[in-house]
Amino acid sequence: MTNTSALRIVWIYPDLLSTYGDRGNVLILQRRAELRGIPTEVVHVHSSDAVPEQGDIYLLGGGEDRPQILAAERLRADGGLARAAARGACVFAVCAGYQIIGESYGDDEANPLPGIGILDIRSGRGQARAVGEIVADVDPSLGVGRITGFENHQGRTEIGPSALPLSTTVRGVGNDDRTEGAYQGQVLGTYLHGPALPRNPQLADLLLRWRVGQLAPLPQAWGDRLHEERLSAALSA
Rank of each mutant, 00 (worst) to 15 (best):
S167F: 13
V173L: 11
V187K: 06
P195Q: 05
L164V: 13
A182T: 11
N200V: 04
G189P: 14
P165V: 04
I147P: 00
G155F: 12
G174S: 10
S167C: 07
R146V: 08
P161L: 06
G189K: 00
A182C: 00
L192E: 07
G174I: 10
S167Y: 12
L192G: 10
Q184H: 06
H153S: 09
N152P: 11
E158K: 04
G189V: 13
R178Q: 11
N152A: 11
P198H: 09
G174Y: 06
P195K: 14
P201E: 02
S162D: 14
Q186N: 14
L164R: 15
G155S: 06
G155M: 06
R156E: 11
N200K: 01
R178L: 14
G172Q: 07
P198F: 04
D176A: 04
P198Y: 01
E151K: 14
L197S: 08
P201T: 12
I147C: 02
D176G: 03
D177G: 00
T157K: 10
G194N: 13
D139A: 10
S141T: 13
N200M: 08
G174F: 02
T169M: 10
V170L: 11
P165W: 04
G160I: 13
T148E: 13
Y191L: 02
I159T: 04
F150S: 05
V187G: 01
I159M: 11
V144S: 03
H193V: 06
G181W: 09
R199W: 15
R156Y: 08
T148W: 03
V170T: 15
D176W: 07
S141G: 05
D177S: 03
H153F: 09
L164W: 13
Y191P: 14
R199H: 15
V170F: 08
T169N: 12
G160M: 13
V170N: 01
P198T: 15
N175G: 03
L197F: 13
Y191T: 12
Q202W: 08
P198K: 12
N152F: 02
V187M: 05
L192C: 10
R171Y: 10
A163N: 11
R171S: 14
P140S: 01
G185Q: 05
P195Y: 07
S141V: 15
L164Q: 13
P165M: 02
G172F: 10
Q186V: 07
P161A: 03
R178D: 08
A182M: 02
N152E: 11
Y191G: 07
R156D: 02
A196K: 09
L142G: 01
L166Y: 07
T148G: 07
G160K: 03
G194S: 13
